[in-house]
Amino acid sequence: MGISVGLGLRREITEALLHLENQKPAFLEVAPENWMEIGGYWGNLFHQISEKFELTAHGLSLSIGAKDELNIPFLKRLKSFLDEYSISLYSEHLAFSTMNNAHLYESLPVAFTDESVKHISTRVKQVQEILERKVILENVVYYTLIDQELSELDFYNAVASEADCEILLDFNNVFVNGKNFNYDPYEFISKIDTSKVSYLHVGGHQEQNDGLLLDAHNNPIKQEVLDLIRKTKHNFNADKLLFERDANLDDLNELLAEIKRIEKSLE
């Protein structure tokens, strides 16, 4: 079975996607928080999109690593949205984005500790029960290490095992974290529990003046990251790889050309 390549749905490209006939992305990934419970112009376009494309979901505000109580009413609303649009694949960031229930609207890193594994796993189980779906947790980019009893790799494998959830492996994030924290992305991929990896991501990054790589999603994917995909793709059973772009979205043709580059690396 091959790996198909999808694109993140952003408002800037929604109309253009509706007009595409050939060379469509195989699927679109939506952030539920940007599309749920809306009507009017965007609600109407989203409905058309859902009729033309297969959808996957990548959440923004679950805050699975937070100490706050899970927001059960929100999870029920989320489930309604996923059910309404027949979205079976739901992923989120293995991070936290709230403190005292206040949102930061950004993914902050969790501690790689046994306590974190237990805490997050308990919450993931609860979320899976409510959503009636597996939660797929993404290896996020982090720029600082909070507390580290476990390696990042062992941490992800432990959460996936303990929570009985799945992993979203972002190739770019492995590469960026590897560079920033001096580890080998190939070794990381060879040791991640691939039986748990059910979804893949890739995007562009940029380098700051001080050498720190940022997960910017604003420019073409670096060749080294495509090489990482090309050389490790056989490790995975996942059948979907998502191309993420959050900025420089003016030209859909450029994004489609990026998808071609990814597809070439998957050949």
Partner: peptide, 12 residues
């Protein structure tokens, strides 16, 4: 200090 609680960013 605002403690925004909106799960949907556009409502913040």
């Amino acid at each position: 200090h605002g403690q925004p609680k909106s799960k949907l960013f556009w409502q913040m």
